[in-house]
């Protein structure tokens, strides 16, 4: 146990913060522990956190995808446009929308890999471009009147109190953990993030893994966009605008190194839970949105700073332990 705790120091810190948050929320708000609230807590940010899970893969792999929020908007816009102007079965429209998301990821992945451009720049262009594509499709219109079953999937509980999206998130998290921690693909993601050249020299298909990740990122963003459309019941060109920084914040808070090669799905999950609980607790206490954002910002800095300072102080003490390693330096 202590061995595990030592190698997962980040997760331990986050777990502590999460527990404190939960206890504080439970004491401060009588509404917090209700089942409805707990479901809502996930449901209200479900699209962001689903994308955060795949973003963790991309960042561990040493890349970044800034275009996710725009791809969410783009896929949803494709879905809405097909629904509005063709007689296509709605399920087919959904599939095409998902394919559009995957295609967006594929294009960016190919540019990154084949032209060897930094993904930061490529996906920054994607961020502008795919948002633009969504606006091209929808202009100033809001498209709704989706089939009732679709709206219901987004808005009503499906299994017990859980809406589809929350179930999807749970499954996605489990699959992500499995893939990252247990499979050869996950291993490659880490090793490439740690050193792409070593991987290349070891016969790992670096380009293939990267392209697959970008496609997965696009596909997941597309999926999240479709889920969002179902939850909102209608789609506009601005859907999910500005989500990217929130998503990246959650991943980095989860202890994933921006330089790639390290981070765990457990850490990302804990970071997601922590952020959601803090926002929910503050929301129930009628604290303004901007202060919620600021609190998350403070937490992001504090969660790296405090262990750093603690280890600094400890290293000054006689018989102190070895310095804490931070998530990324």
């Amino acid at each position: 146990m202590s061995e595990w705790a030592r190698s997962h120091r980040w997760e331990v810190v986050l777990g502590g913060v999460l527990v404190i948050t939960i206890v504080a929320n439970a004491i401060l708000s009588p509404y917090y522990l209700g089942l409805d609230n707990i479901v809502n807590l996930f449901w209200l940010s479900i699209e962001k956190i689903i994308v955060a899970v795949i973003m963790a893969f991309v960042i561990i792999n040493g890349e970044i995808d800034l275009s996710v929020a725009s791809v969410m908007g783009f896929s949803a816009a494709v879905l809405a446009t097909l629904h509005e102007s063709t007689g296509l079965p709605f399920v087919a429209a959904i599939l095409i929308a998902l394919a559009a998301g995957a295609l967006a990821g594929l294009i960016q992945g190919l540019v990154v890999v084949k032209l060897q451009l930094p993904s930061l720049v490529v996906t920054l262009a994607g961020l502008i471009g795919f948002r633009g594509a969504a606006r091209v499709l929808l202009e100033d219109r809001s498209v709704g009147e989706f089939p009732e079953w679709f709206d219901r999937l987004g808005q009503r509980a499906l299994l017990g109190p859980f809406p589809l999206a929350v179930i999807v998130f749970g499954v996605a998290l489990a699959i992500a953990w499995f893939v990252l921690d247990r499979t050869a693909f996950g291993r490659k993601v880490y090793v490439i993030g740690s050193s792409a050249e070593v991987s290349r020299y070891s016969g790992v298909d670096v380009d293939g893994v990267k392209i697959r990740l970008f496609v997965m990122s696009g596909l997941t963003a597309g999926f999240a966009g479709v889920l969002f459309a179902a939850r909102l019941g209608s789609v506009r060109g601005s859907l999910a605008e500005f989500f990217e920084l929130d998503i990246i914040t959650m991943v980095l808070l989860g202890g994933v190194s921006i330089f790639g090669g390290s981070g765990t799905m457990l850490g990302v999950a804990l970071a997601i839970f922590t952020v959601l609980n803090i926002r929910n607790g503050l929301g129930l206490a009628n604290v303004d949105g901007i202060i919620q954002t600021g609190t998350v910002g403070l937490l992001l800095i504090g969660s790296v700073l405090v262990p750093n300072l603690a280890s600094h102080i400890r290293s000054r003490l006689p018989f102190g332990g070895p310095p804490l390693s931070t998530a990324d330096t």
Partner: peptide
Amino acid sequence: LLVAYGGVPAIIVTLGTLALFRTLVSL
């Protein structure tokens, strides 16, 4: 201070202060 002496990576610090500074001015 946070980056140089706190040992926190710049992207984390400035992602945090991106939110914090905005919160301060809003308040």
